[in-house]
Design a protein around this nucleic acid. Structure first.
Lengths: 209, 209
DNA sequence: ACCTGAACACCGTTCAAGT
DNA sequence: ACCTGAACACCGTTCAAGT
């Protein structure tokens, strides 16, 4: 009864998860503490523990919500299986990139949410339809998944080389003439384009086996 | 004087960094706290702050040590530039994989250590020698970097799909017949091989432009 | 100059109590 | 049954003091 005015009635797992999502999207995952989450709902920190086992469970549930944003709607269905694969991965990338906090969450949870299995399933179906053998499909699946997470993980860091280079004294820069040469091209790179470039290059490579 | 018996004399930045590396390699990066680090050296937590600005600086220094393990020795020098590129990236991957805690460290620091620039420089030199134009080189460089970090980041998680699949009820598994099909091949995947497969596929793709 | 204890503003979670 | 306050064992870091 000392919850926030206008909030839905009794405390529930669903209310906790949606409050957690609100906090994470508004303030970032590092601000999501059990105490802060209780504040957001207008309850005591320990009240949460009747509905969730611990903080890890909250994070896992958040990851599942994100994953379901893809899997609860129809997955890409282009008739060309290679295209279907690329479209699926691109959609995953877009959702992850829109929610960069998933990186910290996955690192903390050390697991993917159950609904992510459906994405793998869809990717494998496309690869099989495209004629990849199991060994190549398994390898491509893992490589693609890692590539995609690497993209999100490395998100802010992508400009790190450029910034780091920029911080060098002019004298120090002489050491990096190759970088000086490509720097204009690097600064023009768009994350989305770069993702598609690397993904296509990798898939081309696997399909050319 | 109440430092550990046999430890080198006065507190110094170098002693702090090497103690930090000891803690991280022995117990993991999540155990590295300023208090624990002071314990390791046999000093008071606040004594550290005369030699380092904050914890971030300690982590950055640790990343630089790891990076220098590659850059302080001669970099791969195969006459074939494509090979030189692959060898360099493979060496980076091996060092990162041997020090998986760098993932958390990079995430906390949000920057690469200065010596990492030399790796980019070497990669760009190889790509230029191989005849890639600047736009493709910039794109390939970023994609490769992200792919490599993705591999390390996704390290433990790689088996996540398999474990997650394994946890499904037999009834639930019916939903994932594609996964059932490739599961044997997935379980045989070696991380090192998978890294090279994806890397080669990606580089093939970029070089075929 | 160099080091440090006490203190502040935080964490996640246990446990015993409240209604 | 459901909720919660106090407490425990932690954090990084500031600040004022010690030698």
């Amino acid at each position: 009864m000392r919850g926030r005015v206008g909030q839905a009635g009794p405390l529930s797992r669903a209310r906790i998860i949606s409050a957690a999502m609100r906090v994470v999207e508004r303030d970032g995952v590092e601000v999501l503490t059990m105490r802060r989450l209780a504040d957001e709902i207008g309850t005591a920190p320990m009240s949460l523990y009747r509905h969730v086992a611990d903080k890890r469970e909250v994070l896992m549930e958040l990851l599942d919500v994100v994953s379901r944003r893809i899997t609860d709607r129809p997955l890409p269905a282009s008739p060309d299986p290679r295209r279907r694969l690329i479209d699926t991965v691109t959609e995953v990338h877009q959702v992850l990139e829109a929610n960069p906090w998933v990186v910290q969450a996955v690192l903390a949870v050390e697991e993917l949410p159950p609904s992510a299995l459906r994405l793998s399933e869809h990717m494998f179906a496309a690869m099989r339809a495209a004629g990849l053998d199991e060994r190549t499909a398994a390898s491509a699946h893992t490589a693609i998944w890692r590539y995609t997470w690497g993209h999100v993980f490395f998100g802010h860091l992508a400009a790190a080389s450029a910034r780091s280079y920029g911080r060098q004294e002019p004298a120090g820069r002489a050491e990096y003439e190759e970088m000086a040469h490509v720097m204009p091209a690097m600064l023009e790179l768009k994350s989305q384009d770069n993702f598609r470039d690397g993904l296509k290059a990798m898939i081309d490579g696997f399909f050319a086996r």
